[in-house]
Amino acid sequence: MLFYSEIINILRKRINMKNSKRLKNKDFSLLASNCNGAFILHDLNLKFNSPTVNLFMYPSDFVKYIKNLEYYSKCDLKFIKKEDTAYPVGKLDDIEIHFMHYKDENEAERKWKERTDRIDFDNMFVMMTDRDGCSLEDLKEFDKLPYKNKVVFTHKEYSEIKSSVYIKGFENEKNVGNLYSYKNRFTGYKYYDDFDYVEWFNSRTAEK
């Protein structure tokens, strides 16, 4: 008899295989404010062509980073000590980067530099999530960013935020939860699957 974890892994593999077959644009850069981007890339078995992997930035810092991406990509990464924080915390000029899934500063710096060099400014997608202190002002500033391929996942509907995608299931919360979590034990679907990210990535190919 299969355990629940084995069943859901099988279901997830089927979903990932189906999505991978649909995907046409396979060499893009996905810059995300938290781990959702890394999980999606991993699901699609794609290379990490951006440095925002296994880390998170506060929304206000992420908006600032994306708004001035070329500048921050050239800044030296420095590390600071923060109380009650076991993982490395870096700074690019005036923004903080929380390398929560890195073992030490050396690994964080090496991966950051390596993946920053891979950014494809001509085939880039930007993803933010309504959490980690995200304010309405952050959402508005994100919506103003001069990128066509941008999306922000929100816990409720925002008609005034054109780039927002409402993810159901967090209406009674102050923000969106972990979107890489499974919605239930019978389908293998995760919360972020409510957004057709494959079609989103393919939209860049359709423009050519």
Rank of each mutant, 00 (worst) to 15 (best):
M1E: 13
Y4F: 14
I7H: 01
I8P: 01
N9M: 01
N9I: 00
L11Y: 14
K13N: 10
M17F: 12
L23I: 00
K24Q: 06
K24M: 07
K26C: 08
K26L: 10
F28N: 00
F28G: 00
L30A: 01
G37N: 03
L41H: 12
D43E: 13
L44R: 05
N45G: 15
K47M: 05
N49Q: 05
S50R: 13
S50K: 13
T52E: 00
N54C: 09
M57W: 00
M57S: 02
Y58I: 10
P59Y: 12
D61L: 13
D61E: 11
F62W: 01
V63Q: 00
Y65E: 06
Y65A: 05
Y65D: 04
I66E: 02
L69A: 02
L69I: 01
K74H: 07
K81E: 15
K82F: 09
V89R: 04
G90V: 04
I97Q: 10
M100A: 06
N106M: 15
N106H: 15
R110G: 13
E114H: 03
R115E: 07
D117W: 09
M127Q: 10
M127I: 02
T129C: 15
R131H: 08
R131G: 04
D132L: 12
C134W: 10
L139G: 07
K140T: 11
F142Y: 04
K144S: 07
Y147S: 01
K150R: 12
H155L: 15
H155F: 15
E160N: 10
K162P: 02
K162W: 08
S164W: 00
V165K: 04
I167T: 07
I167L: 09
E171S: 00
E173L: 14
S181Y: 04
S181I: 08
Y182E: 01
K183A: 07
F186Q: 11
T187A: 09
K190C: 13
D194S: 15
D196Y: 11
D196N: 02
Y197E: 00
Y197L: 09
V198K: 03
E199M: 05
N202S: 05
